[in-house]
Design a protein around this nucleic acid. Structure first.
Lengths: 164, 164
DNA sequence: TATTGTTATACTCTATAACTATA
DNA sequence: TATAGTTATAGAGTATAACAATA
């Protein structure tokens, strides 16, 4: 029952972070849809496949992007239907599905990326100095690592209800 | 057609930011549901009403939280059904709806807030120094202000398609 | 006419649980 | 038995457009 007084500086930083990112996400989402008819989740999946020189399994693909197996199956299904990725059985492990990006997928990704970057620059980086960017990257890397190191959602304590 | 080479440092910072916040959001959402059966959007709405000493109109309430009128009507409807807020006609402007937080709403908010803060501290602030927090708050404030100053989504250029 | 808010509706996305198939 | 993935399905949320009422 840790219950420290709550540093208002932290609280402020937290809420501004959430608000800024929410606004950012909303605008980025709009552009991805306008430019390429994809969501940010789909953009991320294409980005991973584009970056990796090898096809990835569903599990590898899911990693930080999606939080349920079926969610990925759904998204992969959409991408496949759109001709942007292809799925096939993995030879070494017949349980696994290999997902690879198609030429169309690469083309779409490359068509969409510049605008995406340009927009994030305008929205996110314009008001920041080089030093800010460095610091932001550094900070968020540590935060991400901390989040990834977090107990996997079962060791999680707390659950109070009915404290009425 | 600005098309600069893309500073990899910026790109990296952008993607880490997105990833970290996504992980953060996911965990926070879980806890809000477990602790109070509300979403983060609903938490924000309660927070605003709790903070404001006056009832707010739907429009005031919507501000940075929700991006469509109907979206807010939907959320307000849920909160009202749960007894956490009440809606009434505004006397000075009969078109407007005044939303006020109920005692139950305050109780829920106050019950949920400490855990919310505690979790964000553990997930977000544990790996950060005081200086990091200060800088992060400062950075995101500028970013937020920049985003809010952005042309309201009609002056937006670009729209390329069919550049096949 | 412009603004405030609601409704109807369609759509996207997520997640749980049951299931199949392979290791 | 455990793991990889899919399917069925239900639920939460969002957004657009049409609408009513007030300014």
């Amino acid at each position: 029952m840790t219950h420290e007084p709550l540093d208002p500086r932290q609280l402020g930083a937290y809420f501004v972070l959430r608000e800024a990112v929410s606004l950012l996400e909303h605008q980025i989402e709009q552009q991805l849809h306008a430019d390429g008819d994809i969501s940010y989740v789909q953009f991320q999946l294409l980005a991973r496949l584009h970056h990796a020189s090898e096809p990835l399994t569903m599990t590898q693909l899911a990693d930080g992007v999606v939080y349920s197996r079926s969610g990925l199956t759904y998204q992969a299904g959409l991408l496949e239907k759109a001709g942007l990725v292809a799925r096939s059985r993995a030879p070494e492990d017949e349980r696994a599905t290999l997902v690879s990006i198609t030429a169309e997928g690469r083309a779409l990704f490359e068509r969409v990326l510049p605008g995406h970057v340009e927009l994030s620059r305008r929205l996110l980086f314009d008001p920041l100095t080089d030093d800010d960017v460095r610091h932001l990257g550094d900070i968020m890397t540590r935060v991400r690592d901390n989040l990834r190191a977090q107990p996997p959602r079962s060791a999680a304590p707390r659950k109070r209800r009915d404290t009425t």
